[in-house]
Design a protein around this nucleic acid. Structure first.
Lengths: 208, 208
DNA sequence: TGTACATCAGTGAACGCGCGTTCACTGATGTAC
DNA sequence: TGTACATCAGTGAACGCGCGTTCACTGATGTAC
């Protein structure tokens, strides 16, 4: 059903929904969430401005779909990096941190739709679910880290995952945007890696 | 010069520039940076849509001014909290962290203009200066923390301040926005305080 | 103290623009028999 | 295999809207003499 007659414009696009998602990604990337308009996404997909309404309730709904797909990819990428805690819980955890940053940098369109577009995951069950799935990877990775700690010394894993998420997000927003070297004398990678390292030492899971 | 004849609308506003800044703050707070329009700010200040152009080059310029004032207030608030490192470097540092969060929560309009409006401090010397001033407080507070550490163990203070900034910003963006309890089972205050605590322990400036 | 005049800080009308959305429509596709 | 028909996924024109910005203007204020 994806095969339109090649070489002549088909009346039916064939895959408009996804084409709109991709147009949204590239527009958001270029001009920020403000710069994105439904009309332009339609234009970029080679379709009239009314066409998107066959697939989305409106502008907001399209952005939300982009965010939803983004969360899924995000969770997958984190899961892959986590690799079920192999080879060691610690290296796996650190790999997740790097994957976070990598996602934000290589897929800025998704990242922006997810975190900077103003879509709220509260009150949108679909979004909420995929967001939790991504979060769960971080929490799981944290949990594993504490295996060897005496129970009394284990911090709540969700707290740790929130800390890591906050620091990663902060690094992305403040230091991984705009011109290289914009705000910081350190690369985002260095910054996140060293930050997580110090934090983990404070947690007692890295010996000094 | 601030005294207009009371009780009758004056042809000259008297303090329009600041009134526009305040209108911008409240609009940005309510509707986000996207929802802000020059026209509405003018309306809210009780003035024609052309009037703002006597004081600002345009929409962007007004937002930049709001951000600029925000950075100054921000730096002042951090400085006050820092209190020259009294009573101890550690408590002073922690107070700065709390002040960061407090600023973001009690002055969301400024915070949003500074960090979420898309104004870039790069290439705007005025903004750059005040941003650095705020940053310097964090760096100074970090530096003090290491007084008692042997030189070889001292991490670069700017790195530390960047870490703290990132974590604070992350907490604000992810957990201090939207409905209470939106994304996290912890309050932003708890989250930031515990996060910084663990980090400082990792730095070796808090004994376990 | 009064007056002439320059400057400042507003007005209000107008512009062109592009957006989001709706509508009745139509061409293409899929399906039942 | 062919045909009738329902449904799907587009079109294109139109709408009302509010925005940012410009313009010639004017009323208020400040200053030199």
């Amino acid at each position: 059903m994806n095969n339109q007659p090649r070489g002549r414009k088909a009346y039916h696009h064939g895959n408009l929904k996804q084409a709109l998602v991709e147009a949204t990604l590239s527009l958001i990337q270029e001009k920020g969430p403000t710069g994105f308009t439904l009309a332009e996404a339609a234009r970029q997909a080679g379709v009239s401005p009314a066409a998107p309404y066959r697939h989305f309730k409106g502008r907001e709904d399209l952005i939300a779909e982009v965010a939803r797909q983004g969360y899924i990819l995000f969770a997958e990428q984190l899961e892959t990096a986590y690799n079920r805690g192999k080879p060691t819980p610690l290296t796996a955890f650190e790999a997740v941190g790097r994957a976070y940053l990598d996602f934000a940098r290589t897929r800025p369109g998704y990242y922006i739709a997810m975190f900077e577009s103003g879509v709220s995951t509260v009150g949108n069950p679909d979004l909420n679910m995929v967001e939790n799935r991504a979060m769960a990877v971080l929490t799981q990775a944290a949990e594993n880290l504490f295996e060897h700690l005496p129970k009394s010394q284990r911090p709540p894993a969700t707290m740790v995952s929130h800390h890591i998420w906050a620091m990663s997000h902060g690094v992305v927003e403040l230091f991984a945007r705009g011109e290289p070297g914009g705000r910081a004398p350190f690369s985002p990678e260095e910054l996140l890696e060293s930050g997580i390292g110090i934090y983990l030492r404070g947690l007692g899971v890295i010996p000094e």
